[in-house]
Amino acid sequence: MDIEGDVDLGTSPDLRRALFGLAGEAPRLALNLQALRYIDSSGIATLIEVLKDCQRSQRQFVLFGLSPAVKEVFHLTHVHRIFQIFDTEEEAVTQA
């Protein structure tokens, strides 16, 4: 699944709906964040919710393609340690 644009207080509910719609079905969910320009704490919280849901049901949740700006937010919030993050889709597929 590709995520693009800005994820903030106004758009994170849409992201949550979309991800929970997908996460309910797929045994493995890989998010492409290459076109994500901005993410705030509400977006990070949404990703954590999805991660916890996947962990509960023993499904895999990985992220790839983070821009330097998005990586900074993950590091600022220290959540880079709890996600499986890869540079490319190929790495996400082969190494996860």
Binding site: I44, E49, I82
Partner: peptide, 18 residues
């Protein structure tokens, strides 16, 4: 303290950190 999978308080942490 953050760095775990708790959701609340991330925004306040960011403000105080930056």
């Amino acid at each position: 303290e953050i760095g775990c999978d708790q959701i609340g308080g991330l925004g306040t942490h960011i403000i105080r950190d930056v």
